[in-house]
Design a binder for these strands. Structure first.
Length: 987
DNA sequence: GTCACGTCAAGTCGA
DNA sequence: TTGACGTGAC
């Protein structure tokens, strides 16, 4: 505070609307903004503002995010802005993690045992399955699970009447629910939803726990569900100061009961809300935005908003048709290489992302990348903690921590093998249940001779159980308790001991002959993660909640418990970014996991019906939003593609996704020519220096195809498939199985090598770098570097007036050119009072026609968008259109702002507002050149099984030594473990 | 009855 | 890639 002027330093990186959001004095601020508009940046800046200008203690601020990734990123940014020390006092995390902390501290008040564990998805599923079977409920376990989840996630949105109705309709589900909860309670477990439900219960009954909280901020608000909304309100119950950021168009978690209508509830519950729209998109080229808007605007019920491109037109997005998924993969790789090559070093592999609807679609892309020797990493997909060997160890630790966790005991009772079969385990479980004791104590008593189990346990089994399971676990438990009391023993020691006493290495060698080294490396990775945890969270104050005066906290000093909770809530192994991966890797990710990130080049393959929209999806609109999210990740180049035939072969034809079908004509049919304008345009968007033509051509190898013409534009020709595709298809889909034995004999691990890509020594494989994969992302703001520079000039002019802007009151705090979120609704009500009451609440994804004026357009075309327009201009047709939707709710207690001054209103129907060629379109990029690093995508990721094994000690499986390659290996020719060693099978 | 082994099919998204 | 299922061997 003493050095320099803190407020200007924060505000400098903001545009006008962002600054208004950051500095607003309203108790509640709702920031609504499209992709690439700097939402997170704005939110973090507001936190800094609240601390530095509002004088709030960081410890009195709660920031809730939706994903671990977002939480981590936020933490990093705030730490940078506020300094590590005060930054870390902020209560920041996912809803679940914050709820867990409160429950650990104060849960005793609602009768919760402080040593509760967290039941993860697998636990819940297994439990429900058992219940359904045991009680013969005739319900689909998966259905029961989602039913239970939905019920818990609803929060106070469900009225008692609704609840009763459901109860009558579904007695079986109700029973299942009851049983499930009882079982969890007996095992002292909470599932993910329970964390939220119980925390709501806690804060509702004991508001003093949050009496210190001055401000609550919510990221990705559109993804909150009912119970999270309740929780948010309760967090803020003392001061009622809330800031939310969100984008209804990016709501892609409906299947987790996210409710877009929460936006509406907020405005109803907090009538003083100051709404801010961020309209400038700093990320993507104009043509990418245009076509993304085309897609999203098919949703007529959508909440319309403006998205103003800051950048120039750019290369036309591509919609490519390929013959098969295999061809699609190969095309993607060819196109990636073409782009990297013809951009002369300006684009690297790390600038490219392939975004998939589901992780299982990655096979063909992975295979093609592997063949070409292009290294990649995978975000989403399978989790580190979900690996078999890791799960076993974690289950052991859970038993150590919570011996009454029957499910965990049951899973480890025969691992390593002790001759106890499934039937025995089931019988033991049933017996324990009937005797109303835990499985653990049943075993314990039996082996101590205190109570003979009715289940037959053979002497051999008993002995093994006694020495290997019971004794090991109980000694570890003692040590874990000592650990909490300050003995020098650490978590790492604990896991090491466990691994040693189980003889886990030998177990892996015996059980997984083929890949035990990978698995052992994973175990070591777990140990090292535990070490990281000790370092980061070992001090108990790291996750601590602030002391609240007069409110006693329980001590949460159980390291093991916190480690396990961390594992359950993170669901994803992450390392910090000190050892950041510097190598150039293509990113493959699910669309869900890509949210919030950006890349210069984005591929969205498999854009066909059944994939997106997914065949099992319930909500087509959500699928469309998903595609929209994927497309808006792209900065400079966007490629969609679609195979003509599904993976089953030529018999099943595939249809282009209806989301893009109407706009086929707007896409290019093949990749653009990377001529001078395209290269320079991309350079501008990315804020990088365009390479000279010489630099480009010097690097291009002879015969390199400069155009995207290696694949037919229209590959539809079922009778005469072209050779390339057919080969690939045949080899992968049909022949591989039979060839397997052949390869085993003549090729060893590298079997089929000649059909695969020739070995290339000089690429970084994902294998070698896997340790860094688990770490989180690059620092810095996601918004393009150009963003800051683009606004610098404007801010310089405006800083003088900025401080005078905010001390207005009520809704009039809006800028004159910014409309209320409910603007059109209130208007609608005026004109249409006679509407019958009805589905107002049910249909809240209302449309808004939003003033399109912004600083930018105002500058570009002052005459057209003059803020001095005397009258609101609303297209009557639009109002008409919305009328059929029934009466909207007015915000209660809000006087109609009549003295707001002139408010400019006009509807925007085109995909993006017309903008004249921007004279200042260049202003940002040049300055941004100075810091090209900052525009790199931020990402956090983890390894997949495929690339997991970290040969820490340099262990590598020699080619040909192992057993014959699995079928999977043949399908995926890229197997660095084997390919990297171009030796023959016999050395 | 129980265990080990092979085969077959199916598989969103994530805290 | 896991899981459910059917089959021989203790």
């Amino acid at each position: 505070m003493s050095t320099g002027n803190p407020d200007t330093s924060i505000l400098q990186s903001l545009n006008k609307a962002q600054r208004r959001a950051v500095t607003s004095n309203a108790p509640t601020v709702a920031i609504l903004a499209g992709p690439g508009s700097g939402k997170t940046h704005t939110l973090t800046s507001r936190v800094v503002w609240l601390v530095q200008q509002g004088g709030y203690r960081p410890a009195d601020i709660i920031i809730a995010t939706f994903t671990v990734k977002a939480a981590r990123e936020m933490k990093e940014r705030i730490g940078k802005a506020l300094g590590e020390e005060s930054g870390k006092n902020i209560v920041l995390g996912t809803f679940h993690s914050i709820a867990r902390r409160y429950l650990a501290k104060y849960g005793g008040r609602i009768g919760l045992d402080s040593k509760f564990g967290i039941a993860d998805d697998g636990d819940s599923r297994a439990l429900i399955q058992r219940i359904c079977k045991r009680l013969d409920l005739h319900v689909e376990p998966s259905h029961a699970k989602s039913w239970i989840g939905k019920r818990k996630a609803k929060g106070s949105t469900s009225t008692p009447a609704q609840g009763r109705k459901q109860r009558k309709e579904n007695p079986a589900l109700e029973t299942c629910f009851q049983e499930y909860q009882d079982h969890l309670a007996r095992s002292n477990l909470l599932d993910y939803d329970d964390l939220l439900v119980r925390c709501v219960e806690l804060l509702r009954n004991h508001p003093s726990c949050v009496s210190n909280v001055q401000a609550v901020l919510i990221d990705e608000y559109q993804d909150t569900n009912g119970i999270q909304y309740d929780l948010m309100k309760l967090f803020a119950q003392t001061r009622q100061r809330l800031t939310i950021v969100g984008d209804p168009d990016q709501s892609i978690y409906g299947w987790r009961s996210a409710e877009i209508r929460n936006l509406y509830r907020l405005l109803r519950d907090y009538p003083e809300t100051d709404e801010v729209s961020l309209e400038e998109n700093y990320r993507s080229s104009q043509s990418i935005l245009d076509i993304s808007l085309d897609v999203i605007q098919q949703d007529t019920k959508r909440y319309k908003k403006v998205l103003l491109p800051v950048h120039t037109k750019g290369a036309k997005p591509v919609l490519r048709k390929l013959k098969s998924s295999a061809a699609e993969g190969e095309w993607i790789v060819a196109e990636i290489r073409r782009a990297v090559m013809l951009f002369g070093g300006m684009l690297r592999y790390e600038d490219v992302a392939v975004l998939l609807r589901s992780a299982s679609l990655s096979r063909h892309v992975e295979s093609a990348l592997g063949k070409a020797g292009v290294a990649y990493r995978m975000i989403g997909g399978h989790k580190f903690y979900d690996r078999k060997e890791i799960k076993i160890l974690l289950d052991y630790l859970r038993v150590v921590y919570q011996p009454d966790n029957n499910d965990a005991v049951a899973r480890v009772i025969n691992v390593p093998r002790r001759g106890i079969g499934e039937a025995t385990i089931k019988s033991l479980l049933d017996e324990a249940e009937q005797a109303k004791m835990s499985l653990w104590s049943l075993l314990w008593r039996h082996c101590r001779g205190q109570r003979k189990a009715t289940t037959n346990i053979r002497a051999k089994m008993e002995q093994k159980l006694n020495t290997e399971l019971l004794r090991v676990v109980s000694t570890l438990r003692q040590e874990s308790e000592q650990m909490n009391e300050g003995s020098p023993l650490t978590l790492v020691d604990l896991i090491d001991k466990l691994v040693g006493q189980l003889n886990f290495k030998r177990y892996l060698e015996e059980e997984y002959v083929e890949d035990h080294e990978q698995r052992w490396a994973n175990v070591q990775e777990l140990v090292s993660l535990a070490g990281d945890f000790m370092r980061d969270f070992g001090k108990a104050d790291e996750e601590a909640l602030p002391e609240v005066e007069g409110v006693a906290q329980a001590k949460e000093d159980d390291l093991l418990g916190r480690f396990l909770a961390n594992v359950a809530l993170a669901s994803d192994a992450q390392k910090d970014d000190k050892e950041r991966d510097k190598s150039s890797l293509v990113t493959i990710s699910t669309i869900h996991a890509a949210k919030g990130l950006e890349w210069p080049v984005v591929f969205v393959p498999s854009v066909f019906t059944g994939s997106i929209p997914h065949s099992r999806a319930e909500d087509a609109d959500e699928e469309r939003r998903l595609l929209y999210v994927a497309m808006t990740r792209a900065q400079a180049l966007l490629y969609l593609s679609c195979p003509l035939y599904g993976s089953q072969g030529l018999s099943n034809k595939v249809e282009l996704s209806p989301f893009v079908a109407p706009f086929v004509g707007k896409f290019a049919q093949k990749g653009p020519s990377f001529d001078r304008p395209v290269v320079e345009g991309a350079a501008k968007i990315l804020g990088r220096a365009a390479p000279t033509e010489k630099a480009i051509f010097d690097k291009i190898p002879p015969m390199f195809p400069p155009e995207d013409d290696r694949f037919p534009i229209d590959p539809f020709d079922p009778k005469n498939p072209d050779g390339l595709d057919d080969d690939a298809d045949g080899q992968y889909a049909r022949v591989s199985k039979r060839q397997r034995t052949v390869y085993a004999n003549n090729g060893g691990g590298g079997g089929g090598g000649e059909e695969e890509r020739p070995w290339k020594p000089d690429y970084a494989t994902t294998m070698e770098k896997s340790s860094e994969f688990t770490m989180s992302a690059l620092p810095g703001f996601v918004s393009a570097g150009a963003h800051r520079a683009a606004t610098t000039a404007a801010s310089a002019q405006e800083t003088t007036t900025a401080t005078k802007q905010h001390p207005r009151t009520g809704t009039s705090r809006r800028r004159p050119d910014q409309r209320s979120l409910l603007g059109f609704v209130t208007m609608e009500q005026k004109t249409q009072r006679a509407q019958p009451p009805g589905k107002a609440l049910a249909d809240l994804s209302f449309t808004r026609c939003q003033a399109a004026a912004s600083r930018h357009t105002a500058r570009c075309a002052p005459a057209a968008t003059s803020i001095d327009l005397p009258e609101p201009v609303v297209d009557p047709g639009l109002a008409q259109h919305r009328l059929s939707r029934g009466p909207a709710l007015a915000r209660p207690n809000t006087p109609k702002p009549t003295d707001d001054g002139p408010r400019k209103r006009y509807a925007v129907f085109s995909s993006s507002p017309q903008r004249p060629a921007s004279p200042d379109g260049t202003d940002g990029t040049e300055a941004a050149l100075a810091a090209p690093e900052q525009s790199r995508p931020a990402a956090s990721f983890h390894t997949t099984t495929f690339m997991s094994a970290l040969p820490r000690a340099g262990v590598r499986r020699p080619v040909g030594m192992g057993p014959p390659p699995s079928m999977d290996r043949l399908r995926k020719p890229f197997k660095p473990l084997t390919i990297n060693r171009p030796r023959g099978p016999r050395g």
